[in-house]
Design a protein around this nucleic acid. Structure first.
Lengths: 220, 220
DNA sequence: GTCTATAAATTGATAGAC
DNA sequence: GTCTATCAATTTATAGAC
């Protein structure tokens, strides 16, 4: 009987639950850092073991295979980001205030974790990736609520009659692209001036909101 | 003396120039397909050789190493895309017509090569990638011309006094994101309905232009 | 130029002692 | 649970025949 199977059947027989979690957590944190930086195929199990300060065998003891470990990490990261995003809607303001807060918070999260979106999008674009669909469906991402809010505002005559789906995509596009496209845009638009690009990102939220606002405001 | 060095010194001594180009071209096309699909670390030299219908050794004969081959491919793809984009400006219309044509053609190019932008952005985001900066600088991408055109229109009072750099970034964002974010947006916004997403992309150009137009139009 | 054969190094994964 | 040792398969790259 293999060890990982044995562990599944009789877990934690020789070590306290706390210590076990510590090691598992250490592995997860190291794996998160390496996978996000180098992607699934670029990451090496040895790298992860080194970063976690443990032996390579322990990775297999806890996660059986590289794919299993990756799945766990991806799901963890995606869920965390999705959760952060969904929590943004807990605002008591009107639709304009809600959107402004959303854009502001979303951009803040992205800027605090600038390499996460590229990691996620890159892996989602891998061909034959059923994992993606499964994880997305399993996440608590639910945009129906958002679409309903928008539709209600349209019906009430508070905003222009636009496509709620378009509104979502436009907000995501305007927020995400300056982050994932940074190496390109910083070079060809800002001539490689990192400081200037940071300044630009700092006021990006006002720009994005102004654009979104103009797309939903009814002309008088 | 190694073979590749010998070839650099005395190229094409035993085979006609035409045949040589054919083989080199075959390798390049195969490498392009594989690298774009799987990325640098995900691609395998054997895959490329198989696709090119030649032996693995020939890859090294022509390109010495995987990195060299990748650099060649990346530069080739980036230059082609950059060239396509720059050619879009050859329009004789007014600024609104120019922008509309640009958005329309850019989106058409992206939709015809939907996995190219993710390939480029992903590799550019790799840490310690001097290659990126070098290739970008070596390309014929020149946005100064674009910024000048915009500034001239602003000075002439034809459009609003906006930041030309923002205009560029917003156009790129609104065009590129629906392509590279497709696996995500198709799932969480269109509930996995591929047909609906294709329809959406088909009219995306009108949407993007409407937004861009509204950001530069002077209110009366 | 193109091939076969193989080196040399890496990597994911397992066995088994403690 | 954690370690050492090692396997088996893969992968880049080279040597050498033709």
């Amino acid at each position: 009987m293999t060890k990982w199977l044995n562990r599944l059947i009789k877990p934690n027989t020789q070590m306290s639950e706390k210590e076990k979690i510590n090691t598992e957590e250490k592995i997860l944190q190291a794996a998160e850092e390496i996978f996000v930086k180098d992607g699934h195929s670029g990451a090496r199990m040895q790298q992860i073991a080194d970063k976690a300060g443990i032996n390579k065998s322990l990775l297999h003891y806890y996660y059986r295979s590289k794919d299993k470990l990756f799945s766990t990490v991806f799901k963890f990261i995606f869920s965390k980001l999705a959760s952060d995003i969904m929590n943004i809607f807990d605002s008591e303001e009107d639709i304009f205030g809600k959107l402004e807060k959303f854009i502001e918070n979303y951009l803040r999260i992205l800027m605090k974790n600038p390499i996460i979106p590229m990691f996620i999008l890159n892996e989602l674009n891998k061909k034959g990736n059923n994992l993606a669909t499964i994880i997305i469906k399993g996440s608590n991402i639910n945009l129906n609520k958002f679409e309903e809010i928008i539709q209600k505002e349209i019906d009430a005559g508070n905003i222009k009659n636009i496509n709620p789906k378009s509104l979502i995509i436009n907000i995501l596009a305007l927020c995400v692209f300056p982050i994932i496209g940074r190496p390109l845009t910083e070079e060809i638009v800002f001539n490689g001036d990192t400081k200037k690009y940071d300044e630009y990102l700092g006021q990006r939220k006002d720009e994005v909101f102004a654009i979104i606002k103009s797309t939903i405001t009814i002309e008088k």
